[in-house]
């Protein structure tokens, strides 16, 4: 009986096995790396907005408190995009004839909404609540980055579940005192480990078991 396989089949088989392993590794790396990359998470991506609003100018240079516009952040799930009237509190007088604010004036006079493009988009199966975070010692800049230095808004974090869990598994490293919640320049102090423990007790932060329970974020 003649040989079924040519002699070269030996090396072909070995190369094939090796190729499958390499390809699988490469493929997995590409997929896992891909979903973590800004291409997929939209991290660091600025959007074209109807008005090129600068947080750096308003929150940074002018020192306006976050809550002046995002007034719902302490009491509701969403921080809220301010109504056009909030813009007009100042811009009825300041820069009230410049072209790039024309959409604001038009929105105010015609009672139509400015269609801002959402920058921080969570999937609809995530039930994120701003107020619980802000009231339990998580400051704005922990998730949003130093907004006071962003001429154009972008998403500073990946907003992926891994990133959420990173804090939910160990919230103490990010807990701040009440007075620092809206402080954009806050950095953890060297004694954050002890401080965090005290603050967690003070705020009654739930156990890691509770914080990492599925239904904490998903209903």
């Amino acid at each position: 009986m003649p040989q079924l396989f040519h002699r070269s089949a030996n090396s072909t088989a070995r190369i094939s096995i090796l190729a499958v392993v390499i390809l699988a590794t490469l493929g997995l790396t590409a997929v896992l790396g891909g979903v973590r990359s800004p291409n997929f998470t939209n991290q660091y991506l600025t959007r074209d907005q109807p008005i090129q609003f600068s947080h750096k100018h308003h929150a940074g240079d002018d020192g306006i408190d976050c809550r002046y516009c995002h007034a719902g952040v302490e009491t509701s799930a969403t921080a809220g995009i301010p109504p056009t009237k909030t813009c007009m509190n100042c811009h009825s007088v300041l820069f009230n004839n410049v072209g790039y604010l024309a959409p604001v004036r038009e929105s105010y006079s015609t009672n139509t909404s400015i269609q801002w493009v959402k920058v921080h988009r969570l999937a609809d199966y995530v039930y994120f609540n701003h107020s619980i975070h802000v009231n339990k010692g998580i400051g704005c800049s922990t998730c949003h980055g130093q907004v006071n230095q962003m001429p154009l808004m972008f998403q500073a974090s990946t907003l992926q579940m891994q990133w959420c869990l990173d804090c939910h598994r160990d919230p103490e490293k990010n807990l701040r005192e009440k007075k620092d919640i809206f402080n954009m320049d806050w950095k953890p102090a060297p004694d954050q480990a002890e401080k965090g423990k005290l603050l967690a007790a003070q705020y009654n932060v739930r156990s890691v078991r509770d914080l990492t329970s599925c239904s904490t974020c998903h209903r």
Partner: peptide, 16 residues
């Protein structure tokens, strides 16, 4: 068969 396997290789690559 071996030859066939070899010709399939690029296909496999494209598929993955």
């Amino acid at each position: 068969r071996a030859r066939r396997h070899l010709t399939r290789f690029p296909l496999l690559l494209a598929a993955s």
